[in-house]
């Protein structure tokens, strides 16, 4: 087994892992009970999934075709910059429009603050 084959196996694992994470994200979107826990699944596992797929693609073109595509790296960086902002804004908008937490939630420190703000 020469080096090229080993590289191919590593790239395959990267992309399969990315696809697997994306599938689990989709399952989580359906299974989890409320908008906040769904945001966890959607904005996070997808981040790592996309990252693995892009990294696998980058390695493929760099190691097998000898062509370094820096845009794939930029893609990873931009996903890491934008996805937390999106997740935060969705959750914040949901909370401010009185979307209820799941009934089994154990604590809510924000409720008191919100009441205080509304009272002003």
């Amino acid at each position: 087994m020469n080096v090229i084959e080993i590289v191919k196996v590593i790239i395959g694992i990267c992309i399969a892992l990315g696809a697997l994470l994306t599938v689990v994200t989709a399952v989580g979107l359906i299974r989890l009970p409320d908008v906040y826990t769904r945001t966890h699944a959607a904005s996070k596992a997808a981040t790592l999934g996309v990252m693995f797929v892009l990294a696998g693609t980058f390695l493929y073109f760099y190691l097998l075709e000898g062509h370094m595509n820096s845009r794939l790296i930029l893609g990873i960086v931009f996903i890491f910059m934008t996805s937390p902002v999106a997740g935060h804004l969705i959750a914040r908008a949901a909370y401010n429009t009185n979307v209820k937490l799941w009934e089994n939630s154990v604590q809510d420190d924000l409720a008191a603050v919100k009441k205080e703000r509304a009272g002003e």
């Binding site: 699944a41 996070k44 089994n104 939630s105 154990v106 604590q107 420190d109």
Partner: peptide, 21 residues
Amino acid sequence: NIAVLKVIIKPKLDIQPGIFA
């Protein structure tokens, strides 16, 4: 990520979500 993955694919949904300060 592994922790969240486990929660999602676990047959029984026994999470305790909440907001803390």
